[in-house]
Amino acid sequence: MALIEIDTLSVTFDAGDRRVRAVQEVSLNVDAKASFGLVGESGSGKSTILRAICGLAPITGGQVRIGGEVVKSPRSKAFSAQVQMVFQDPYASLHPRHTIDRTLSEPLAIHGIGDTDARVMAALSDVGLPTSFRFRYPHQLSGGQRQRVAIARALMLKPQILLLDEPTSALDASVQAEVLNLLARLRDERGLTFLMVSHDLAVIDHMCDRVLVMQHGRAVEELSREALAGARMQTDYARSLFAASADRMLEG
């Protein structure tokens, strides 16, 4: 049984006078400890799937099951100890008026977990930040350091599943490499399951075993990593996306 099962998921918003069908009947399964990628252009609904899983967008059709159980609305505290998310923009995802210490100890306070000092220190060193950063404010950190804090925050509750919404697209190339390496290391150490969204095929290819190509809220094609690297796509859209990323090929 897959750890994450998404069954004909639809997400529809009411935006003023019109209805936006952001996601239409998308199904996918992610096994435990596997990494699954979602690619597509802006507006393809890839991020909305992540937001629907964790309750930030409404599920208007179909089902999301985590470990075989249909998710409840609103999400329980047990859910938040199981599934966490890392956002795209590290400048917007940390509270600007909270120190790193406050940001990292907040999940512990919510779940009534003690031993705050030791856990915060451990979390900082796990993501490769010096513990002297503990009482800094986000604006005293670089983009890459902020994203490390965001990852540390997501791991405070020791979840099994990490939803990654373009975690490196706002970062410089060298910082992207560091953050991707960090994510890969944490995945191996802790046996995490990743569901990752990106517009960069190379990043998805580097991190994921399987990938779903999306367009206009619909699933276009699901590919294994080998099929992606070998350019064995069945649909025109997936092929055009691949062609536009040609400079991200190995020999490029």
Binding site: M85, A92, E106, R153
Partner: peptide, 20 residues
Amino acid sequence: DYIAAVKLQGAGAMRVIWGH
């Protein structure tokens, strides 16, 4: 996003309003 993040941690409405 930072409010979304703390909601995902399981924070209740009062904690979000007061603390964040």
